[in-house]
Design a protein around this nucleic acid. Structure first.
Length: 951
RNA sequence: GCGGGGGUGCCCGAGCUAGGCCAAAGGGGGUGGACUGAGGCUCCACUGGAGUAGUCCUGCGCGGGUUCAAAUCCCGCCCCCCGCACCA
């Protein structure tokens, strides 16, 4: 006996995992080279090494590996490579944080990831960090048993890879997909650098929004009022300024304008030529009137504390009919102004702001803010522009604004903005919407309009068309996410493709810029096909010119000339070309759903824009995220489980199954300790079956039954696995198969004999191969213990023996089980000590009739169809038919199929008596149903529903 | 707001595109039992309610509707999660 106690099973798993990983490695099992036969090229998005892997990272990699291993066993020449993404700023930011001694980060590195204390200080060097975590992640991948061809590993800052990226951008440039434009970004005025989410305090993404600025003329200059609701300008009856803030008269937008001093400072980041002429006090402003540019009326300038001088222009127009703030403060300052309604809203009076403020107990600005949100929302969605506003409009605007009355708020907003902007009466200013956002250095982030920024123009109609075509021909697993891709491809517009800092490749034609990380990771799968050769041949980046890549990747140019020019041997060039064309196109790419709107969409665009159609990727597979004990893993919850730790605690195979196969692909999976243990226990059960070597060689009903179950599973396995229905598959081969084995052993026991070791072996021979993609280490170990000397990882997928699938046998056994259930249900309510169970079987005279009824029901027919086919001759007969038909509609599928087979029920039952006796632990007798039985017990029997009498 | 996905029994999670095999798979947990020197192993039974008979009642977010029949189809409502850009 080699029984391994369960508590030691994990240790055992870890031991064999190491052993087989080494064996695979030694035998170069996963190093793929072009050869005759079908190929399968699969990739998973490469990791960004700014931390070790945690449990959440594992799912996609294992999912990809499971599929790779399955395809390998299906006879495909599988290439599964891996690289590392060094491009971008987060590594730099994180290294900075280490240097600064960021407490939270150090705590996580020390106490969660258990990074040695002598290593931590060295992580302040970004390159050290990237390389350190790269190795760490590689270890995790190896320990998980990923079947990767490691010869092809690279990082995105390898000079050779950079040459590839340079080539990529040249191609995009040639096609006109790279354009120059201005672009607003969050900006730190002290750093003088763009600020993204990773650079802010609390990791907030600065949201940039647009305010419309409407100019109200005054004797001193144009008061620039900023608003998110320009359509309400018809009802602007005053202009607010903050009495405590300082204002300036400045040159901007080609005229003299009045804005807050702070606004003037920030405006300089958005346009050239902003010039402060002089300060002006709020009290001076209040002495003047301003002209509403739309109505032409003179309106007062009034003080209000709620106006934030630091937001937009620091000047606000006052629309008391629709802005609760405006109404409230006008009323409080006892200014009596006309309230001009602009929007009509069902369920409200003319001036909804007034109505809301007066019907609510407004205590502070927070209350007003709530009311404002409520009102803005309903007006935006349901409001209609009033007809009478046109009468207030000054003559020269009447015609161009004539379409405003009757239109919806969003339409009116667009129209008003357009009309006013065209006439120089309005402009726009950008502002951080979720302000204040602070840079890590402590300064408040502002909006800067970057000029001469480089973009990939994903809005280019021709490019979009190609991308959509690619998607249409691509396999998407699961199919539900195809919609997300369609939406994303449609929505993408210009996207900045270069940054001013971070690791990566300089833009070939403008070296001040570094190609940004989501732009240099779109077609890198192509690089894998030759990466190992470039390394082995020690090719230098300078040799890898545009012509070189043109030939290798596109077959363009004369190889002899390219060889001469680059110094790369002709045969080498041709070999590289062969490698590329052999593996490309990519067959499958695995990723999480977070990459759909960005990386995966760019992956589609760039392939579509650079490669000919026959080299476009064939498929993507998306899997959900990971929860740990029902919760999202997060720094704040401190529930991050390092992947390597999980592998150590549960065993690689257990983690692999837990991450990939407990739920459907698209749903988030919940990793729990109890779930992982359940998987380990079940795996162990199969492992322990290796010891079941002695017994009887009888092949009876139980043997034929379990063989039928086994081969049916094998038969269903290929479609399930091909569709990546891993949950269903694991459910079948792990949990169901295990209970089939139990059932088999019970069936054997009920015959008072031993199991058949040959059958157990047959189960294990097949099972080991079926589980191999999921639990490759255990499968390998068992495969060898079964006496094989090959690797199960490269064995063929098992095929089923159709002759062993026996429907009738399975149906009959289900029938026996159903009967046991029925009897148990009776015993449940039976008072007294049962000693004997009598089963009286229907005589079979109704069987042909039953079959006809089942046939009709199966075809979707109803009682009428049945009656008209039978034409009963008496009322009595009709009643029998009706009852029988009713019975059939309520029958289970199993019995229906038995009915169609027209089996002899008495015989079937006799075959099962010993099983039923065994399960109930009671004496059971089977007899034909007779009239005497009927009168004695007042019981009926129907076909497939014998009368049961408990005594 | 726009777009996508959900709300199922103590918990997790299938099923709902093709309505009847659904009191609703599977796993976890719980209760009882078998095995055992012992068990945290394994196996068996039970795990909505009622019941001296294989049944009946209630039930799959809430409220309606279609149908002989609805977790599954239709309408309305409530709630939750994710993405919305220059960031990996």
């Amino acid at each position: 006996m080699i029984t391994i106690p369960s508590q030691d099973f994990v240790a055992f798993l870890n031991e064999i995992s190491k052993k087989w990983q080494d064996e695979w490695n030694r035998n170069k099992l996963f190093e793929a080279e072009p050869k005759e036969g079908k190929k399968f090229f699969t990739t998973v998005a490469f990791p960004y090494p700014n931390s070790p892997f945690h449990l959440g990272h594992g799912r996609t990699y294992v999912t990809g590996d499971v599929y790779a291993r399955f395809m390998r066993m299906r006879g495909y020449n599988v290439l599964f490579p891996m690289g590392f993404h060094f491009t971008g700023t987060p590594i730099i930011t994180m290294a900075d944080d280490v240097a600064k001694g960021d407490k939270d980060l150090l705590d996580i590195f020390q106490n969660i990831y258990e990074i040695p204390s002598d290593v931590i200080p060295r992580l302040s060097d970004p390159l050290f960090m990237a390389n350190y975590f790269k190795e760490e992640i590689k270890m995790a991948m190896r320990e998980l048993g990923l079947s990767i061809d490691w010869r092809r590993e690279f990082t995105t800052i390898d000079p050779q890879f950079s040459s590839f990226i340079v080539w990529q951008f040249s191609k995009l440039q040639e096609r006109g997909f790279v354009v120059k434009d201005t672009h607003p970004v969050g900006w730190c005025p002290v750093h003088n650098l763009p600020v993204g989410m990773h650079d802010t305090k609390g990791d907030v993404e600065p949201e940039i929004g647009e305010y419309v600025v409407i100019f109200f003329d005054t004797p001193l200059g144009r008061l620039a009022a900023a608003t998110l609701r320009p359509e309400t300008v018809f009802g602007a009856v005053a202009v607010w300024v903050n009495p405590k803030a300082s204002y300036v008269i400045a040159e901007a937008w080609g005229s003299k304008i009045i804005i807050s001093e702070k606004a003037a400072d920030k405006l300089k980041f958005q346009m050239d030529g902003v010039n402060v002429i002089q300060r002006v006090s709020p009290s001076d402003l209040q002495k003047m009137n301003a002209t509403n540019p739309v109505t032409g009326r003179e309106i007062p300038v009034l003080p209000a504390d709620f106006v934030d001088p630091n937001t937009a222009t620091g000047v606000v127009m006052s629309v008391p009919a629709h802005a609760p703030f405006d109404y409230f403060y006008l009323k409080r300052s006892r200014v009596n102004l006309e309230i001009v309604p602009v929007i009509s809203l069902e369920g409200y009076s003319d001036a909804p702001a007034k109505e809301l403020v007066e019907s609510t107990q407004v205590k502070n600005d927070a209350d007003l803010k709530k009311l404002t949100e409520q009102l803005y929302k309903s007006e935006y969605n349901k409001g209609v522009m009033r007809a009478d506003i046109l009468s207030r409009v000054r003559d020269q605007l009447k015609e161009s604004l004539s379409k405003v009355p009757g239109s919806s708020v969003p339409e009116a907003r667009k129209l008003v903005t357009e009309v006013l902007s065209e006439r120089g009466m309005a402009s726009k200013v950008l502002e951080i919407l979720n302000k204040p956002v602070y840079c890590r250095c402590g300064n408040e982030v502002v909006v800067k309009l970057l000029k001469d920024q480089w973009f990939l123009d994903y809005g280019n109609p021709e490019w979009k068309r190609l991308a959509k075509k690619l998607l249409a021909n691509m396999r998407v697993v699961p199919d539900e996410v195809r919609k997300d891709f369609e939406y994303s491809l449609d929505w993408l517009q210009k996207r900045a493709c270069a940054r001013t800092r971070g690791l990566g490749t300089p833009l070939p034609w403008d070296k001040r810029w570094i190609i940004e990380s989501l732009s240099d990771s779109t077609i890198y799968m192509a690089y894998y096909t030759v990466a190992h050769r470039i390394k082995a041949l020690n090719l230098h980046a300078t040799q890898l010119s545009e012509e070189f890549w043109d030939y290798v990747l596109l077959g363009k140019g004369d190889p002899a000339k390219v060889a001469e020019k680059s110094g790369v041997a002709l045969e080498t060039l041709q070999d590289l070309r062969r490698n590329f064309t052999f593996w490309y196109p990519l067959d499958m790419r695995h990723s999480g759903p977070d990459l759909i709107p960005n990386h995966l969409s760019f992956f589609i665009f760039n392939h579509a824009g650079i490669f000919p159609e026959e080299l476009w990727p064939k498929g993507v597979a998306i899997n959900g995220f990971i929860l740990y004990e029902g919760k999202k893993m997060s720094k704040s919850l401190r529930n991050i489980i390092p992947l390597r730790k999980a592998v150590k605690n549960y065993g690689a195979d257990v983690v692999r199954i837990s991450l990939t196969s407990l739920v459907d692909m698209a749903t988030d999976v919940n990793f729990t300790d109890s779930g992982a243990r359940a998987i380990a226990e079940t795996l162990k059960k199969f492992f322990d079956m290796l010891d079941m070597k002695s017994g009887s060689r009888i092949v009876g009903i139980p043997e034929r039954w379990i063989q039928s179950k086994l081969h049916r599973i094998v038969k269903d396995s290929v479609p399930l696995m091909t569709d990546m229905k891993f949950r269903e598959f694991i459910n079948e081969i792990l949990f169901n198969m295990s209970s089939y084995v139990n059932e088999y052993l019970e069936m054997v026991r009920s015959e008072s004999r031993e199991y058949n070791p040959d059958v157990i072996r047959e189960v294990l021979e097949i099972w080991t191969r079926l589980i191999a993609p999921f639990a490759p280490h255990l499968a390998e170990e068992m495969w060898h213990r079964l006496g094989h000397t090959t690797f199960v990882s490269t064995e063929g997928w098992p095929s089923h023996d159709e002759s062993k699938i026996n429907d009738v046998l399975e149906l009959e056994h289900e029938y026996h089980k159903q009967l046991v259930e029925d009897i148990r249900a009776i015993l449940n309510v039976y008072k007294g000590k049962p000693s004997l169970v009598m089963i009286y079987v229907h005589d079979g005279t109704l069987t042909p009739l039953l079959r006809e009824a089942v046939e009709i029901v199966t075809k979707g027919g109803n009682l009428k169809d049945f009656m008209s086919s039978k034409r009963p001759s008496s009322k009595e007969e009709a009643k029998t038919y009706q009852r029988l038909f009713q019975y059939v509609t309520e029958m289970g599928e199993n019995n229906k199929r038995l009915a169609l087979l027209g089996v002899n029920e008495l015989e079937v039952l006799r075959k099962g008596v010993s099983y039923i006796r065994y399960k109930l632990n009671l004496d059971v007798e089977v007899e034909p149903f007779t009239n005497e039985v009927k009168t004695k017990f007042n019981k009926e029997a129907l076909p497939l529903r014998p009368a049961i009498i408990v005594q």
